[in-house]
């Protein structure tokens, strides 16, 4: 009797374990049959926003420099690059934005340069540096201005390049990508037109930029401006105040555009000499609040406060 009981128990254990194995293998099969999402890497926030708007949850989107205010100063480590090597797409801004690209090993056929289609419209940053080594001829290391998305017509082209690249990855989502892109394009187009009309209301107005990072913004919306080399953390007093006073006399400047909120003391000193300060972040990093579109709307309101006087 004891033997019969033991044998039955053993059979039961074997049967259960076989059943579990089968279940596990079935689960594994289901998992392996689930199509993997294309893995996509982006290098700045505007690209992240455009990609996310177009593809949504159909892709596995990564923005490794998301914690950086200025992702163009991000320096990848070997592990980040090793992860990027296994991606399906690496969407870059181009126009000298990703300086680290020279120092890493990434297959070229995975890289999508979103500014490729408008190489002829790229602007120089003004940082042309020439050096030579003794008897060798001098060689230049020119740099392009990188913040292309400030011109929303170029941003549309960048979004289009992203859409085209995504369409190569997922046949079934082509219609979704197309329709999401059209919605995004309409929003950007509308904002672009309002920026143009805002500046067109006072086309001869001269303004100052705290830093030379607005090349595409100036060129796209025909803003007449002079760039300084000020940081928001600088206290604008003494020499710097004299600098803008001279500019004020020379060009009748009444406003300055900052990358970030300046010091209270600077704001007050500038106000005392009749200079209005507004903040228009260049926008490479993730905004503290809102998204790319809400940031552009906020920039537009700031610009209106300069151009459209009540």
């Amino acid at each position: 009797m004891k033997h019969i009981l033991l044998s039955s128990l053993l059979c039961l254990v074997l049967f259960t374990s076989c059943k579990n194995d089968k279940k596990q293998s079935e689960t594994a099969d289901i998992e392996s049959n689930t199509p993997e999402k294309p893995v996509v890497y982006v290098t700045n926030y505007p690209l992240y926003y455009f990609t996310n708007r177009i593809a949504g949850k159909t892709i596995d989107l990564h923005f490794p420099a998301s914690q950086k205010t200025f992702p163009d100063y991000w320096k990848p480590v070997a592990d980040s690059i090793a992860a990027m090597q296994n991606a399906d797409l690496i969407i870059i801004n181009g126009a000298s934005y990703e300086k680290w690209l020279m120092n890493v090993s990434i297959p070229e056929d995975k890289i999508i340069n979103t500014s490729e289609s408008f190489q002829d419209k790229l602007l120089a940053s003004g940082h042309v540096f020439t050096h030579s080594h003794g008897g060798e001829g001098a060689h230049e290391h020119p740099e392009m201005a990188s913040y292309t998305w400030q011109d929303l017509s170029l941003a549309i082209k960048q979004a289009e390049a992203i859409k085209n690249a995504l369409m190569t990855q997922s046949e079934k989502d082509k219609t979704t990508f197309e329709s999401n892109f059209e919605n995004l394009k309409a929003e950007l187009e509308q904002l672009h037109q309002v920026f143009l009309s805002t500046v067109a209301s006072q086309p001869d107005l001269e303004i100052a930029f705290s830093h030379p990072v607005y090349q595409y913004f100036e060129a796209a919306y025909k803003i007449k401006g002079t760039s300084l080399h000020w940081e928001p953390s600088d206290n604008i007093a003494g020499d710097k105040l004299h600098e803008i006073e001279a500019l004020q006399k020379q060009k009748d400047i009444k406003s300055i555009i900052w990358e970030n909120t300046p010091l209270e003391a600077s704001l007050s000193n500038l106000k005392n000499i009749g200079i209005q300060s507004i903040v228009i972040p260049p926008g490479g990093g993730k905004p503290v609040q809102g998204d790319f579109i809400s940031q552009q709307k906020s920039n537009l309101e700031a610009l209106k406060s300069v151009y459209i006087t009540p």
Partner: peptide
């Protein structure tokens, strides 16, 4: 301001 000529010794 825009150009540096280095020695071949660099």
């Amino acid at each position: 301001k825009t150009e540096v000529v280095a020695s071949p010794a660099i």
